[in-house]
Design a protein around this nucleic acid. Sequence first.
DNA 1: GATGAATGAGCGTTCATTCAT
DNA 2: TATGAATGAACGCTCATTCAT
Lengths: 196, 196, 196, 196
Amino acid sequence: MMADKSEITHKGEERVQALILAAYHSIAEKGFEGLRLRDVAQQVGLNHATLHHYFPTKEAMVQAVVLYVTQRLAQTATFTEGTPMEQLRAHLHALQQCMQEEPALFVVLSEIGLRAQRDPAIRAIVQQQTEGWHALLTGILEAGIRQGDWPRDLDAEATASAIIALTQSFNLINAKLLPIRAEQAMKQLERWLELK
Amino acid sequence: MMADKSEITHKGEERVQALILAAYHSIAEKGFEGLRLRDVAQQVGLNHATLHHYFPTKEAMVQAVVLYVTQRLAQTATFTEGTPMEQLRAHLHALQQCMQEEPALFVVLSEIGLRAQRDPAIRAIVQQQTEGWHALLTGILEAGIRQGDWPRDLDAEATASAIIALTQSFNLINAKLLPIRAEQAMKQLERWLELK
Amino acid sequence: MMADKSEITHKGEERVQALILAAYHSIAEKGFEGLRLRDVAQQVGLNHATLHHYFPTKEAMVQAVVLYVTQRLAQTATFTEGTPMEQLRAHLHALQQCMQEEPALFVVLSEIGLRAQRDPAIRAIVQQQTEGWHALLTGILEAGIRQGDWPRDLDAEATASAIIALTQSFNLINAKLLPIRAEQAMKQLERWLELK
Amino acid sequence: MMADKSEITHKGEERVQALILAAYHSIAEKGFEGLRLRDVAQQVGLNHATLHHYFPTKEAMVQAVVLYVTQRLAQTATFTEGTPMEQLRAHLHALQQCMQEEPALFVVLSEIGLRAQRDPAIRAIVQQQTEGWHALLTGILEAGIRQGDWPRDLDAEATASAIIALTQSFNLINAKLLPIRAEQAMKQLERWLELK
DNA sequence: GATGAATGAGCGTTCATTCAT
DNA sequence: TATGAATGAACGCTCATTCAT
């Protein structure tokens, strides 16, 4: 008759995930500016007041979305095998594929990046994730330099930064603000890195 | 005793400029999300109702800010003399200087880029400016390729896009989301382009 | 301990009715021109924001008032027994009584009539109600003509219109714009119709 | 070089008249609710601030419109020759013609009637005019009764009131709130008065 | 007399949050 | 846990009016 605790918790976790996803899509479509708790609750079929049982404040929900997005992105960068050059190529291809399949991810990422400048809590989350990403890229590049894949004088850290920066601004390209396709610029990056 | 017409107009234009600047700084500090007409008016020492004497709606004011920012950026890219390689180097240096002296410009530029995805009026302004910038860069690169400054197989358009994309995401770097300085990534770009 | 559903709904409906009544009195006193949501809410002891919990917009509330007024008036015209002449006499007496007891009803009715000319939604409501009233009167008059209560050449439709028009302008009389009492003009109408 | 005083005054009076007319048309179209001084000024090609040189306040302008409308209507009722029955018939025909040619006049008249209930200054103007009209009608009717045109027991004052009341509500008919034409009801009034 | 500039008071509406049930 | 009801603070915008020029 009565659901046991784990079931309740499970249901609660599902609800939380559904709310995060709904908020994520809201932000992708209308930006942080257009994020409304009532909308999010309605998308999940919840009363707007009930939402506060899962997220005490709007800020808490936003932080959950930030965590969700950064973790989604981190999944793109987990691999262990192959040469440094193969790893980097795989990573860039994974990113490119993600851009095509789910451009929303990069839109929200940009929104988060902007908000991180004003919100220390968000900044902390983003910073941690970005540093991890940067370290990963730097590691690959340094390994490649040691193996002779890239010239000795390539600045690994700077190159890693350039890659991240380029990635994060691709939503601007996808938004058709630039008269080219994202692939082109990405290909140029690969050429610079002599990835083919 | 009586002010001449140009003086009156001049005063009005000054007010308009002051309001645009105040809005610009508000956006830089708090984003579009935090842009409040009452704040902007107060910064200029005006009643919030008077603001509507200069801008009929909030949207009109925002568009004025967008125009201001894109034109400010366009000024960085106006030069006529020197070889293609010198021109590109000068341009990148001017951008770098701008990033250091007034990082707010790039914060607002990112805000605008995000908003352009949802607002056709803003998109039109940004698109026009970005296309102009892209054409300028492509022209320089193509000229350089013809002169042998860069290899024959350099994709001028893609490279131009990469430069723009990199530039537009530098605010994320300046926001200390990356453990490096903007200069480093910019230097890497210059190295790729064999600018020194 | 726990209120049942009908009670909850009942309370909500009571609030809605109270708000409609408050708006009705506001319009009677200050016209549509002077109708303020904050006033209405305060009359019911509610925060003005809460009013939007019951009526999404001011227009929705106004329409509710229009429906309320037209239905109130329709109640004056519901009867089934008696000869046509008796029915008409009863109807006119009911209207007269209403004018004396609640002149506000006719003030608001005039406000509505004026607004109906510019507002299609209100016009639809008023039109429907007025047409019903006109049909009722025409029916009574035609029945009376068949029974010989009134002369064969009496134009039933035109007479019905004249009665309605006269009724709707009585608020002007009650407002003491005419140096006579409403009863007098109403009596004259009855004499014309040989109602006594 | 410089216009003499009478010319200036003349020009000023023309301006005042133009403003009154513009306001009149605004009220006819959008009601008192939609009357905006800026609109009125613009219609006459005047700066909104300049309008205040001719009418110190909005209320003053409204009163001028009220006077204009009541005087326009009074012109319909000025005649000296003919038998009482001929005079009344002529008057009703003149009114009917006015309704057809310029229904706006009756719309504004209704607006004024409603506003008169709340505004003593307007009430005073309307009352004076209405009383005059009522007296005129009563005079004609009494003269007709003495001459045997109408039955001895006709209540002259009540009949006059009924005529005025009917007239003032014709805009509701013209607004197509009633499924008949104004002429029909007016004809019925004439039949009651045995005008043909 | 004419006008651009400025203002105060106020409006309808929004929304995250709280709370009793 | 769930929800209808309620609220305060704020927002963009309007408009009659005032005033210096």
